[in-house]
């Protein structure tokens, strides 16, 4: 039987049953010859998943490095929380602007207001929307897009 380290290994939910009889081999023999292919595959998977002989040494920081690490972490938290705050603030301001516009529109033209505030049944993002990538595509922008019968408004 293969000895598996129980330290950091979480057993897979359904441990596959080994099909054939496993010959008694010493734990040192590296090759998995003698077992059938299905068993070999399972053993390979279990080997890859387990922490057996794969863990590096526990990282021990020097006092100076530990201080640096903490300072870096604190600065990062500050940085991210500031970004978040700015984003939330911007959203808040945008909402206020929208509210002001709608309140004003309601006073000025109730007709237009009604047309502006009726929510459509479904709101869909267009399929052509592209998520930003780290580098641009070969054609950064499709300037030659033409209105045709398919994409007629």
């Amino acid at each position: 039987m293969l000895r598996l380290s129980s330290r950091n290994w979480c057993a897979p939910k359904a441990v596959a049953q080994l099909k054939g009889p496993v010959r008694q081999k010493s734990a040192r023999s590296g090759s998995r010859g003698g077992t059938n292919q299905a068993d070999q595959r399972i053993l390979a998977q279990l080997y890859a998943l387990s922490a057996h002989r794969k863990l590096p040494k526990v990282l021990k920081y020097s006092p100076e490095d530990l201080v640096k690490h903490n300072v870096i972490h604190r600065a990062w938290m500050f940085y991210k929380s500031e970004q978040r705050r700015e984003r939330e603030n911007a959203l808040k301001v945008q909402y206020e602007c929208m509210k002001e516009a709608c309140d004003d529109l309601e006073q000025v033209s109730p007709e237009l207001f009604k047309k502006a505030t009726t929510r459509p049944r479904t709101v869909r993002f267009p399929r052509e929307i592209r998520i930003p990538t780290d580098t641009p595509p070969n054609v950064p922008w499709d300037s030659s897009w033409k209105r045709s019968s398919e994409n007629k408004k």
């Binding site: 602007c97 516009a101 004003d104 529109l105 047309k115 502006a116 459509p120």
Partner: peptide, 8 residues
């Protein structure tokens, strides 16, 4: 369809 901003 809702306006984002009003300029007066």
């Amino acid at each position: 369809n809702t306006p984002a901003l009003v300029q007066k």
